[in-house]
Design a protein around this nucleic acid. Structure first.
Lengths: 241, 241
DNA sequence: ACCTGAACACCGTTCAAGT
DNA sequence: ACCTGAACACCGTTCAAGT
């Protein structure tokens, strides 16, 4: 069903078969982990899933060639996860009040998923808690403790927010079945509620913002009364690239 | 790696091959959708994934036999989802204040997943928004509107809660990698925060309860001032079978 | 070291053949 | 209608063979 041909001009990859007979070991390696991961990401974005034959095809290489650079499909997925986590870390800023920091982190986290929607279902089934993520948690813990959260609550606060983000990322790729599949005879109020809400991407965005605001507001009530540095202003948006 | 043999006593399924030669159409059907779904659920719980050969093996039937009752693997998954949704609906009670109702629904929802942990990764990638779910949404919308939530917020409130539940269900099956993988030299505060938290299932439970309480508390702030029927008492637990 | 092509075990699905 | 066994297209992975 897919068409992998893309009019390859001659000399595309600098090394090609010399005459007509197949080559074994090229002088310059055709592959490296970086090229594999980036191509895999592009492929997942376009096709929605990842198969070794398709990946090898996009890299103009035999499937078995990949196994000289990665241990298998699982490692490719792990590398994609690392790439994503790196993107999250780059965009999160922790030198600000805890509520703004958490909000910015959550948005960066979800935004990274939103840029590679196809990856969500590949990564959702496994946690993001790779060593890469540890330093992000470290900063989150420090921020929350400094803000006055009880030590035994801190991990729960972070984990719950992360669960919400991950669930929201899944919501992002969930096909919006309901909108007109709802029978206004049987479920009239649901139909009305759906009509009052935007469609497509903005639907998911709005639900995310509603939940994020509520979660942060709820976290604020966990703080002892003398710790309330930031007034509950209406959503101080923190812009960032 | 798996051993599907289970010492079958003769006459196990009432209909077996008469002598030694294979049978074609048995007098009583060997299969029905109910048996298929329940066996699939058991299999997913035990093995963590679902394959047609394994399912056929557990049903003591040839793989191709399944296709006379079900259109394919996708429909089996859909039937499992319907089974799960039914369980959620049965345990949720909506004739109570909105916050208690939402809290009970969320717990029932997650509890249904927790009983079949293996199913989470099968269902997480697709929404639960099947027609079965519509009437649950209908009741949720009615409850929230009656409580005074703005019509344009209602779907967001429900969707965000559902995202949190789904993410928490995924957290439930996430292997607890971090606990001792954390380097207390590099990330000392994270290590300390983790030490202050329970391990195993209870870790996920606590994070879920922290997030659920915060979300509901945050939702309460969305209500106009004249709508606050329930005081913010400390977690009125709603027991249920 | 790095690539190819053949090969293997597996999966989901189809289909003719039997009753 | 309902089952079987053979067959198909596909997948991830291994491995000997080439340079």
């Amino acid at each position: 069903m897919r068409d992998d041909r893309r009019a390859a001009p001659c000399g595309d990859t600098a090394i090609a078969e010399q005459d007509g007979h197949p080559m074994a070991r090229p002088r310059t390696p055709l592959l490296d982990r970086q090229r594999i991961v980036h191509t895999a990401l592009r492929l997942v974005d376009e096709a929605g899933d990842l198969t070794i034959p398709a990946l090898a095809g996009a890299l103009k290489v035999s499937p078995s060639a990949l196994y000289h650079h990665v241990t298998g499909r699982a490692e490719i997925v792990a590398l994609m996860r690392a790439e994503l986590v790196r993107a999250i870390g780059e965009r999160s800023l922790w030198d600000r009040p805890w509520d703004e920091a958490l909000r910015g982190w959550a948005r960066a986290y979800r935004e990274a998923f939103a840029e590679h929607p196809g990856i969500i279902r590949l990564l959702a089934t496994a946690p993001l808690a790779e060593p890469f993520m540890h330093e992000v948690y470290e900063r989150a813990v420090a921020t929350l403790e400094a803000a006055g959260f009880a030590p035994e609550d801190v991990m729960g606060v972070i984990t719950a927010l992360e669960s919400f983000i991950l669930g929201s990322a899944l919501d992002l790729v969930a096909p919006a079945v309901m909108v007109d599949a709802v029978d206004r005879e049987v479920t009239p109020r649901l139909a009305a509620a759906l009509a009052a809400v935007p469609t497509g991407r903005r639907r998911a965005d709005q639900a995310f913002e509603v939940g994020l605001a509520a979660l942060i507001a709820g976290y604020r009530t966990l703080l002892p009364a003398d710790h309330a540095p930031v007034a509950a202003g209406p959503d101080p948006i923190s812009d960032q690239a």
